[in-house]
Nucleic acid binder design. Structure first.
Length: 415
RNA sequence: GCGGCUAUGGUGUAACGGUUAACACUGGAGCUUGUGGAGCUCUCGAUCAGGGUUCGAUUCCCUGUAGCCGCCCCA
């Protein structure tokens, strides 16, 4: 036997391989979110996955865990500490701050970066994922908050979701602060309250009520009927825009410290999938890391893995169709050059064509085309070369039609 | 960082502690020199690693490793 130790074919822990079917979905994800973002007048930017580690360290003690335990951080050959970005917001804040005097506001930017986090993976949470980030800078208007939420809404609709499939839940950091002030809670207790609210959906109602009483907050203060003024304003604008599945939810608080105003998350209305599909909110102080001239912002982010899970559950995943439209099979290896010439002619008309070199029998060549889910087949044989007439087979229906050379290009380029 | 579950060909599954580890898909060869995607025949290919219990371990126990799922945290 002489068994040799081989390398594993698994990808690195927590990251994915994108096989062509996966890449096809990914391309669909990218093109859909890009189209929607651009439709709202947002411009695409991009940045390196490498950032100086200080960018994440400077955000305060609360983020120690994120920086020390949940990032890929290493020292480069020049002794610099480098981090694979775990989120995009500090990067975009850095870029905006760098050109804060010249960019012009309101500024609308979006990006589709990959992000890394060093943590144990679980369903819907991997060590690398891709995320749409949409941000609007330089406006304090409630209309800006509403616009960002409506972009999020439009993205989900563009993927085929109905308003009944998801709900937009809005909360408010101002509201949270007002409770803290009213009850005179210290900073620690305020944080505890925020954490409890964040976890509310995941814990039994009785536990939540007990814990909330323990820190001295009456349950009535968190009633969904007591809509804070900022949330109410945004909800009114959204309604005017024709968005009817948004509501106030006092337990929407978002985990990050940098949020300052209205925050929101979208949820699948199917209670079995209670993970947030996307989330965001207003953050008014982020660029202050880079300058004393702060730039206000509001934005949201949506991951490719969570949206894929959502679309799968809802039956909204598009069927896989390869980009290759035509497969040319040959009856005899000697005809390979003829087949390649025919393919070349079709390519000049922007038809995607793959050619078989005839190393297997014709039947097996067709199997290959079918296996690759290529929709059309042309067989090249000496008869066809002589007559100039080719049989085009639709591999989905099994139907065949005869076309002369010139008509082939016309036929395929209309697909 | 903490906890639960799982580990058999490339994939998905099967095997009361007892012959040669079974079945399906996939791959390869053929039936079959140009209408074939099917079918049939043949074939390649596996018990995660180490230790223990036992006459005998894929099966039971321990350790390790890996994966999945939760928790923590949340981008």
């Amino acid at each position: 036997m002489g068994k040799k130790e081989h390398l594993s074919t698994d990808p690195y822990k927590g990251v994915r391989d994108f096989f062509p079917e996966d890449q096809a979905f990914f391309n669909y994800f990218i093109s859909t979110v890009r189209e929607v973002s651009e439709r709202f007048g947002y411009l695409e930017y991009h940045a390196s996955v490498l950032e100086p580690a200080e960018l994440y360290k400077s955000k305060g003690a609360e983020n120690e865990e994120l920086v020390h335990d949940q990032t890929y951080t290493f020292v480069d050959r020049g002794g610099r500490e480098v981090t694979l970005r775990p989120e995009m917001t500090p990067t975009v804040a850095r870029m905006v701050a760098a050109r804060r005097r010249e960019v012009g506001y309101p500024l609308r930017w979006f990006s589709i970066p990959n992000l890394f986090r060093y943590e144990r993976s679980q369903r819907g949470r991997l060590r690398e994922h891709w995320q749409l980030n949409v941000d609007l800078f330089g406006s304090n208007s409630r209309n800006a908050d509403a616009e960002i939420i409506s972009v999020a809404h439009a993205v989900l609709v563009a993927f085929g979701a109905q308003e009944s499939d998801f709900v937009l839940k809005l909360g408010s950091r101002n509201f949270l602060d007002s409770i803290t002030r009213e009850l005179n809670l210290d900073e620690d207790t305020g944080k505890k309250l925020r954490g409890l609210l964040d976890r509310r959906a995941k814990m039994p109602a009785a536990d939540f009520e007990r814990d909330i009483k323990d820190i001295g907050v009456a349950l009535e203060m968190l009633s969904p009927d007591k809509i804070p003024a900022d949330v109410a304003e945004v909800l009114t604008i959204l309604k005017d825009l024709g968005i009817n599945n948004a509501e106030f939810d006092p337990s929407i608080v978002r985990g990050f410290d940098y949020y300052t105003g209205v925050v929101f998350e979208a949820f699948d209305t199917n209670p079995e999938n209670n993970r947030a599909l996307l989330g965001g909110g207003r953050y008014d102080n982020l660029t202050s890391l880079f300058s004393d001239e702060p730039v206000v912002g509001v934005g949201f982010a949506m991951g490719d893995v969570t949206i894929r899970d959502f679309l799968e559950v809802r039956g909204l995943l598009p069927e896989y169709i390869p980009t290759t439209k035509v497969y040319v099979a040959i009856a005899d290896q000697a005809l390979a050059s003829e087949a390649m010439k025919l393919a070349g002619m079709l390519r000049e008309h922007n038809v995607s064509v793959a050619v078989d070199f005839g190393e297997k029998k014709l039947g097996d060549q067709i199997k290959t085309a079918a296996k690759h889910k290529i929709p059309y087949l042309i067989v090249v044989g000496s008869d066809e070369i002589a007559s100039g007439e080719f049989r085009v087979k639709d591999l989905n229906s099994g139907e065949e039609k005869k076309l002369v050379r010139a008509d082939l290009a016309t036929f395929f380029s209309t697909l």
